[in-house]
């Protein structure tokens, strides 16, 4: 029963989708479905389901439907919805939590944003600071689609010509933040 309330699940056991969504649902219980979030979202026009509808799906326990929609992956964290929500709900944070669920469950349709974030974090873990070219190289490698790097080549060349970035083969680095990353994961897996 505890799992259904706070999403904690049994320690050591992989969480179910329902367990992962429980804390997000808890954040949104006061949603009145007014749609201010959808009206404020600069990317709502590109979404297949409005933010308001997404919250409805969550509140009515239609978690699987949420993960057929690209909506939360199109959140650009502008915080307009959070600022304007008449119930003061942390809607941008809820979008981020959904992104975390998509990453943890490794859901295929979100691979582009998930791998983008993962590649960024990998570079940070290795070196402490993100190395912009290494991060983009890791991202391109993970996507295994030559069209994506091709689109970025002209910009990459311009930035290299300015000396702002340099060609960088991904390296293991010193593992500067290894311990910190490991500890954060350990605590999150337990809770």
């Amino acid at each position: 029963m505890k799992a259904a309330i706070d999403g904690s699940g049994e320690p050591g056991k992989p969480k179910t989708l329902e367990e992962r969504l429980a804390p997000v649902r808890k954040m949104l219980l006061a949603c009145i479905q007014c749609g201010t979030c959808s009206g404020s979202c600069p990317n709502a026009w590109a979404m297949d389901s409005s933010p308001r509808h997404l919250w409805r799906l969550l509140l009515t326990h239609n978690g699987e439907e949420i993960f057929k929609s690209r909506t939360f992956a199109l959140c650009s964290t502008c915080y307009s919805c959070t600022l304007r929500c008449p119930r003061g709900l942390p809607l941008t944070d809820a979008m981020s939590l959904l992104k975390q669920v998509a990453a943890a469950e490794n859901i295929y349709i979100y691979r582009r944003s998930v791998r983008f974030y993962q590649s960024f974090m990998e570079s940070v873990r290795r070196h402490g600071r993100v190395r912009e070219m290494e991060f983009m190289t890791l991202y391109f490698m993970s996507m295994k689609n030559p069209m994506i790097p091709l689109k970025f080549t002209p910009l990459g060349m311009k930035l290299m010509a300015k000396g702002k970035v340099s060609f960088e083969i991904p390296s293991k680095g010193s593992g500067k933040l290894d311990a910190l990353f490991r500890k954060a994961k350990e605590i999150e897996d337990q809770s």
């Binding site: 944070d93 990453a103 944003s113 983008f116 960024f120 940070v124 600071r129 933040l177 910190l180 954060a184």
Partner: peptide, 24 residues
């Protein structure tokens, strides 16, 4: 010895990391 704040990437992956990186 500053390190990355996690940008918007950390919170796409891990809630705790998105606080721990800037907190460091």
């Amino acid at each position: 010895d500053w390190t990355c704040c996690g940008a918007t990437a950390a919170e796409g992956i891990s809630h705790l990391l998105s606080f721990a990186l800037p907190a460091r």
